[in-house]
Design a protein around this nucleic acid. Structure first.
Length: 276
DNA sequence: CGAGAGTCCTGAAGGC
DNA sequence: TGCCTTCAGGACTCTC
């Protein structure tokens, strides 16, 4: 399930293959994703040159241009089971291979997404502005994200701190796995109301989120279940998970059994002794 | 405005 | 063995 480290790993894996390349052909086999892929996307993309791929939260933005006509941005979201793989010699078309973006070099970038929660949309123009991006919170690894930000946004909020940090309008890129891991690292109970966490503890939480994400980034992204890196190798962050998916197993710090609970129809893992 | 539930989807896993 | 149910998850969208 791609979270921010996986999306960033994907971005970095794609960059050397696509930046500067011209799009030769686009095959749309299945357009029914989170939102339908525009039928005109293939026509739009062919002939454009990919100038860069940037990331905003878990959205990837392919900046595409052409000297003779208007460019724009290909907005991609991997949902929870999506991958973008670099296929130097695409051979057999597999199940759920929904989109192929073939470059002039013959290398193909293949979008596969069994659960079809992903997205592929087109933003025309020279600015990457879209309603999906408009009200996103800060990047957790950027300078404008810190404990003060979390503390201020949390004023008066009764939602649990775990659901709070998973809200993309508060901070982007913290998914279910890293939310549990970050709260464990910060020693904060996941069910505590967001408005009842002190400023000092939010400072620690912001730092924990950064550390957790950076750690996962160094490991190449997690591979829990579906994730595959662009070169096909799998990540291995789950081996280092402190609490996620470890219900009943001893806490790595105090040996108390890790506990699980449901929050907003999501599973949360925590240590009742280490987290208050 | 915030909170909470519903929704999309496939595949794996568990129960009987 | 096989069918049925449940769960997994991102994040938008709707209702209250």
């Amino acid at each position: 399930m791609p979270e921010l480290p996986e999306v960033e790993t994907t971005r970095q894996g794609l960059l050397p293959h696509v930046v500067g390349a011209r799009i030769a052909k686009v095959v749309l086999r299945e357009r029914r994703l989170r939102w339908p892929i525009p039928a005109s996307l293939a026509r739009t993309l062919v002939g454009l040159r990919v100038e860069n791929i940037t990331r905003r939260g878990k959205y990837l933005l392919w900046e595409c241009r052409d000297p003779h006509r208007a460019g724009g941005f290909l907005l991609c979201h991997l949902g929870m089971s999506g991958t973008l793989q670099v296929c130097p010699q695409p051979s057999v078309i597999g199940k759920h291979d929904h989109v192929d973006i073939q470059l002039e070099s013959a290398t193909t970038i293949r979008f596969n997404d069994p659960r079809r929660f992903g997205a592929m949309l087109w933003i025309a123009g020279s600015e990457a502005r879209h309603s999906l991006l408009d009200s996103l919170g800060p990047e957790p690894l950027a300078a404008d994200f810190d404990g003060d930000h979390l503390f201020h946004v949390a004023r008066g909020r009764s939602v649990s701190v775990k659901e709070f940090i998973m809200n993309g309008h508060v901070v982007v890129g913290v998914g279910n796995i890293y939310a549990s891991e970050s709260l464990f690292r910060a020693g904060i109970h996941p069910a505590r109301a967001a408005g009842r966490v002190s400023r000092a503890r939010y400072v620690r939480l912001a730092q924990s989120i950064r550390e957790t994400l950076l750690h996962a980034l160094r490991e190449g992204g997690s591979s829990l279940r579906d994730y595959v890196q662009t070169d096909g190798a799998s990540g291995y962050f789950q081996l280092a998970a402190a609490v996620y998916d470890r219900e009943g197993l001893p806490c790595r710090v105090c040996a108390a059994p890790v506990r699980a609970l449901r929050q907003g129809q999501r599973s949360t893992y925590f240590c009742a002794r280490c987290q208050r």
